[in-house]
């Protein structure tokens, strides 16, 4: 079977300053991949490169053996929560409904079929009772669940989530992790940028430890090895040592 993602020697820079370089990576379909690494490691940059939101200087990216353009409708992206205007006049259900737009196409409007789908997706994340709340009137975890519902409504094969667990309650986090695993069991591929190292082993099938380069990619038990982690977090650790923490 063709791999979900194949990256070959990918380089990205901002204004001539390299952000990530020499990234080689292969992700099979039906995997939940976690991308971890210290601040500024280039995790978000890697996601953006995959989605061509930033251009790559060098290298190649294949998605399901093809280009991004041929796969746009098979991809759902959940940006970081900080990227939204939470005062926007939109309700929860209408937000989820947006997930159906890519497949409806231009000139047409969502009909009952799409509304039903959006409602079902809200049920999956346990947010159906909030369907007519303005999105700013939700807690962080509820907002994240709504955006996951929107991604579900896209009926995608490949999901990208940037830091979905930041600032959310534990119940929402568990709901989301369970749903991601359900997706994986359906053969979908899920890529998650993640901050909290403690849960990484439980949540992901594969881990990519990044710090400008690929430090290590593989099974969580393998990557979460102290010696390997040290390579990525060296700077953070020396900072801690200097601060007198042991």
């Amino acid at each position: 079977m063709v791999s979900a993602l194949v990256l070959n020697d990918v380089h990205v820079s901002y204004h001539g300053k390299s952000a990530i370089s020499g990234i080689n990576l292969k992700v099979e379909s039906g995997t939940v991949l976690g991308i971890i690494g210290p601040n500024g490691a280039g995790k978000s940059t890697l996601l953006k490169a995959l989605l061509k939101l930033v251009s790559i200087d060098k290298g190649s990216i294949e998605i399901f053996g093809k280009t991004l353009e041929e796969n746009r409708k098979r991809i759902a992206y959940v940006p970081q929560r900080s990227e939204f205007d939470w005062d926007f006049p939109i309700h929860v259900l209408d937000t989820v409904l947006m997930g159906t737009y890519p497949k409806i196409g231009i000139f047409k409007r969502p009909k009952k079929k799409e509304r039903d789908l959006a409602y079902e997706c809200l049920e999956k994340v346990g947010m159906e009772h909030f369907y007519n709340r303005q999105i700013g009137e939700l807690s962080g975890g509820q907002q994240q669940r709504v955006f996951l519902a929107r991604a579900l409504a896209q009926n995608a094969d490949l999901f990208f989530l940037d830091e979905p667990f930041v600032g959310i309650d534990i119940a929402s986090e568990e709901t989301i992790v369970d749903l991601l695993k359900d997706l994986r069991n359906l053969g979908k591929t899920v890529v998650v940028v993640h901050h909290d190292l403690s849960k990484a082993t439980e949540y992901f099938d594969e881990l990519l430890l990044l710090n400008k380069h690929v430090i290590h990619a593989g099974k969580p038990s393998e990557v979460m090895h102290p010696e390997i982690m040290l390579k990525a977090y060296e700077r953070e650790l020396s900072f801690l040592r200097e601060a007198g923490v042991n």
Partner: peptide
């Protein structure tokens, strides 16, 4: 009226709009 959907999504979430093409 015709482009309501597109105007809505590009106003609210231009990144998603760009990702889906």
């Amino acid at each position: 009226y015709v482009f309501y959907k597109e105007l809505l999504v590009t106003s609210f979430d231009p990144t998603m709009a760009e990702v889906y093409g």
